[in-house]
Simulated assay, not measured.
Amino acid sequence: MRQLNTADLRALRQQLDTMKRQVLDELRATAPSARAAWAEGVHEVKTHADEAEAERAADVYLAEIEVDRARLEEIERSIARLTSGRYGICEDCDREIPRARLLAQPTATRCTACQAAAEAHRQH
């Protein structure tokens, strides 16, 4: 983490904390909507089209919740890495992640080259 100074680390921690609060707010906002949609659907007589639409809406809510949950986990891992002193070190090659990349993507755990390789591997 030689490329990150104390001010950078403080700013990154603040940014991660803000991101975490935003995701938690999104999860809190999504949960009542999902419960209300489910409860509404339980008490109504429906056609097959209504049931299909309700199922589609439930799938969308679940997908949104899963995306937010994954983002929260990523943010929490970054905060843990910051606390342990591993923040800014590529988890694949152990080289420093460039400062500009961390400032642009505070949850980055890989350098650009290793991230590109991981994404290429996932596509195959």
Rank of each mutant, 00 (worst) to 15 (best):
E66Y: 08
A49L: 14
Y61T: 04
Y87N: 01
G41K: 10
D50P: 05
R86A: 10
A104Q: 11
E55T: 12
E40M: 12
P106H: 03
L9V: 06
I89M: 10
R99G: 05
A70R: 14
G41T: 05
Q123E: 12
C111M: 12
E91Y: 07
L27G: 03
A11P: 05
Q22K: 09
P98S: 13
A31K: 10
T47K: 00
N5G: 10
T109Q: 14
Q15L: 09
P106K: 01
T112I: 15
V60S: 09
S78K: 03
V67R: 14
Y61D: 06
D59V: 11
V60L: 15
G41N: 12
R10C: 06
E76N: 07
V60R: 15
Q3D: 09
R35P: 01
E73Y: 05
A63E: 10
A31G: 06
E74Q: 07
A116G: 04
I65Q: 09
C111Q: 13
E76C: 04
D8F: 09
Q123V: 02
M19C: 09
R110Q: 02
P32I: 14
I75V: 12
D92E: 15
A49S: 15
T47S: 11
P98L: 11
D8S: 03
A108Y: 08
L27Y: 12
A34T: 03
M19T: 02
Q3I: 05
V42F: 11
T18Y: 01
I65L: 08
G88K: 01
D59H: 15
A100M: 04
D59P: 00
A63S: 10
D25M: 02
R56T: 08
I89F: 08
L82I: 07
G85I: 10
T109E: 14
E91Q: 07
A80C: 02
H124C: 02
T30V: 05
Q3N: 13
R86M: 07
T109H: 09
V45W: 10
R77D: 08
R13D: 03
R35E: 15
D94M: 00
R101P: 07
S84F: 06
V23E: 05
R77P: 00
I79K: 00
E73L: 11
E40I: 03
C93W: 10
V23C: 00
A57V: 05
Y61I: 08
R2I: 12
R35S: 14
R28Y: 10
E53I: 15
K20P: 03
E119D: 15
D17C: 02
C114E: 08
L62S: 13
A63V: 07
D94N: 08
H121Y: 15
D8A: 00
E119F: 13
E119I: 11
L72G: 02
Q3E: 15
P32E: 13
D8P: 02
Y87R: 00
C93A: 08
Q22G: 06
R56H: 10
E53M: 09
A113K: 04
Q22C: 02
I97R: 04
C93L: 07
D25T: 05
L9T: 03
K20Y: 04
L12I: 11
A52Q: 09
Q14S: 07
T112R: 13
T107R: 01
I89T: 13
E64R: 10
R2M: 09
R13M: 02
L82P: 03
I65F: 09
A108E: 07
T18R: 10
T18N: 12
S33Q: 15
D92Q: 12
E26C: 05
S33D: 13
E44S: 04
C114I: 06
A11M: 06
